[in-house]
């Protein structure tokens, strides 16, 4: 994909706005306020502020190295910020409420020699569960992810997908109020990905707050009540999917047909275009009337289809990240 034109010059800072309470009467399970973290001279997280409303799913979106994992580790008190404040379930530090949080780190890890059941028992105990509660929860969760038959097997005999499911249920075993998942979908096959999405939605329906990081837009678009886009440690934008889209006045027009497609790039109101023989994808401003655009196009080509869309999250994401880098959008999307 190759973007050209004016959209690429947008200043990302324009989209950064302070968190606001976006739903009245909803508590905040997690709040980051001006959080900053440096590793030597490298600024990993830069004055990052965000709120996760209780009982909702919040997605951290960002390219690799954006500072998602660092932010999550600071939320978990595994690392400490150099500046700024973090509030987790009403406490200054996650340490105070560790047993009320479920955490799935990006780097998965289990004891290879331990059995599935022993693993869950061990993590349950570390999360302060009573033996009776563990006995009650383990079979149910194993059944939920179809691992009952494997309960007595050592972890090393499980496939990678099974291990991921095991790790996920060990995260939610103790019925946490806040679940933090770092890249939960990486390496999952489509079936397990659907299962995980279902489990995450179930958690939300039970009133659990879910925060997860990803760079896969479809998952974020489908699951999140609220999104925050991060790049180079800074927040680019946050809000609900609708709120984010509403900030982008552009629309995408896709045209198929035959004729002189190159001329379409110069139609009034077109901000950028991608054109190949018989196909054009145009970004146009909100003020452009689709009917006029279609008429203008028909002067150069024979139309076989004409469709108007809002930009996808993927497009918004790529555009914001590139304008934040100060380089033309498109290279990465092409890559």
């Amino acid at each position: 994909m190759l973007f050209r034109g004016t959209l690429a010059t947008l200043d990302a800072r324009h989209w950064t706005r302070p968190c606001e309470v976006w739903e009245n009467g909803v508590d905040v399970a997690l709040r980051l306020d001006g959080v900053t973290k440096r590793y030597g001279s490298f600024l990993a997280v830069d004055h990052f502020s965000v709120e996760a409303p209780t009982g909702r799913i919040l997605g951290f979106l960002g390219p690799n190295g954006a500072g998602k994992t660092s932010s999550i580790r600071m939320i978990m008190s595994i690392m400490y910020p150099d500046a700024g404040r973090i509030e987790v379930l009403g406490h200054d530090r996650a340490l105070a409420v560790k047993d009320r949080i479920g955490y799935l780190p990006e780097e998965r890890g289990l004891y290879r020699k331990m059995t599935v059941e022993a693993t869950l028992r061990y993590f349950g105990k570390l999360k302060g569960m009573s033996a009776a509660r563990i006995r009650e929860r383990v079979p149910k969760l194993l059944a939920d992810v179809d691992l009952t038959a494997w309960s007595k097997k050592p972890v090393e005999s499980l496939s990678k997908g099974m291990q991921q499911k095991l790790q996920f249920i060990s995260t939610i075993l103790h019925e946490p109020e806040l679940v933090i998942l770092d890249e939960p979908f990486s390496g999952l096959d489509p079936i397990n990905m659907d299962l995980l999405q279902k489990l995450m939605l179930d958690l939300r329906n039970q009133g659990v707050t879910v925060v997860f990081s990803t760079h896969q837009m479809e998952n974020a678009q489908r699951l999140c009540d609220r999104l925050v886009l991060i790049n180079r440690g800074r927040k680019l934008i946050d809000g609900s999917m609708e709120q984010i889209r509403a900030q982008f006045s552009e629309r995408i027009v896709t045209i198929n047909g035959e004729g002189d497609f190159a001329a379409l790039a110069d139609l009034p109101g077109v901000q950028s275009s991608q054109i190949v023989e018989g196909h054009a994808r145009l970004e146009v401003g909100d003020s452009v009337d689709p009917n006029e655009l279609a008429q203008g196009a028909m002067r150069h080509i024979r139309l076989s289809s004409f469709e108007v869309q809002r930009p996808s999250l993927h497009e918004i994401f790529v555009k914001l990240v590139h304008s934040d880098r100060g380089q033309p959008a498109g290279e990465e999307a092409a890559a």
Binding site: I78, I101, P105, E107, G109, L110, L126, Q167, S170
Partner: peptide, 16 residues
Amino acid sequence: EEKSSRVVEVLLSAVS
């Protein structure tokens, strides 16, 4: 072993 199998971060979410 805990470090290389990455169990350590899971543990650190439960204990200091």
